[in-house]
């Protein structure tokens, strides 16, 4: 084993890259859950976003268009979930599962001709002096734009939920849809918009994996990141900045175990690969004692007839 092969600066830089898809998907799901809807279809939305983004950027040779297509794909697919849960009043757990199963199949179908294709590369930020600073340069100033967008999005969601009137309405809908309805707010519209936002974020997160982090297309390549994103929202007690913290923590664990694999540590590869999932369970156990942050109407179906 050779631990000196692990470069701490590169470790932190790649940690931020590994954390970004998680952050994007989790921040979207956070908004959905704050509006009182539990969307378990994040994994399906991510993998659909991954293939939409990949296919469009290969066809147009523009990574930016690919990312937009991924957001659009995620949002459109999430409309299916919105229709089932908000208009057909179906069970949210079952609908979310249906979305994941459907998304995994759909992406495999769409991605058949893209296996082994190389996507166009995304340009990285390259500032004249800042990017060349040792240590700080690679960590802060030489990433792809989506990574910065993820952090900005976290700040924007924080501001939206905490300071804006629309965010207040969204939270009211999530805490008590009956009260919000009585006040004259359109519960269904708020929730559909939140679900679409969540879908777009998950789609973008998926495309980040297939276009920037890996970058190639393989079936089922999200490998449970969507589910970890769901766990992350619980971990964060439904607070945006803690989602960022959690995403970096999980990104760090994942990058570290990959580095340990490469360094040839005595633990078998399979057991190292289990670690992100086991740690997710551990974190869930620790955090589940405190449910005070959970929106009160989470997972409940709303029908205006009562």
């Amino acid at each position: 084993m050779d631990l000196s092969a692990i470069n701490p600066v590169l470790l932190i830089a790649s940690l931020m890259v590994a954390a970004t898809p998680l952050l994007l998907a989790a921040i979207g799901e956070l908004v959905v859950e704050r509006s009182g809807v539990l969307n378990l279809g994040v994994e399906g939305l991510m993998i659909t976003g991954a293939i939409c983004g990949f296919a469009i950027s290969v066809e147009t040779t523009s990574p930016m268009l690919g990312l937009l297509a991924a957001m659009l794909g995620g949002a459109v697919l999430s409309l299916l979930f919105a229709f089932l849960t908000q208009f057909a009043l179906a069970n949210q757990v079952a609908s979310g599962l249906a979305l994941t199963l459907f998304g995994l199949g759909l992406s495999a179908l769409m991605g058949r001709s893209y296996v082994g294709v190389k996507p166009p590369a995304m340009a990285k930020l390259d500032l004249p002096i800042l990017s060349d600073i040792p240590v700080l340069g690679p960590i802060f100033f030489s990433h792809d734009p989506v990574l910065y967008f993820g952090i900005a999005l976290t700040a924007a969601v924080y501001w939206f939920l905490k300071k804006s009137r629309a965010g207040l309405i969204l939270r009211a809908v999530g805490e008590s849809h009956d009260a919000a309805h009585a006040l004259g707010y359109n519960v269904i519209r708020v929730r559909v918009l939140a679900i679409m936002f969540g879908g777009a974020c998950a789609g973008l997160g998926g495309a980040y994996i297939s276009l920037i982090r890996v970058p190639q297309w393989t079936e089922g390549m999200t490998a449970g990141i969507g589910w970890i994103a769901l766990a992350l929202v619980v971990f964060a007690s439904w607070k945006p900045w803690r989602v960022l913290l959690g995403a970096y923590l999980f990104g760090g664990i994942n990058v570290l175990q990959l580095n340990l694999q490469a360094a040839g540590i005595a633990i078998p590869v399979e057991y190292l690969a289990m670690s992100p999932y086991l740690i997710t369970i551990l974190v869930l156990v620790i955090m589940s004692a405190d449910k005070s942050g959970a929106p009160a109407a989470l997972g409940r179906t709303f029908h205006a007839s009562q």
Partner: peptide, 26 residues
């Protein structure tokens, strides 16, 4: 026919079933 098409098919089945459940309860 690609094998993934069957997966999509199975996923669709669950979608339609959940949507139609509306008629059972409402």
């Amino acid at each position: 026919l690609p094998s993934a098409a069957i997966q999509v098919f199975q996923g669709m089945l669950l979608f339609f079933l959940l949507a139609l459940d509306l008629l059972t309860n409402y």
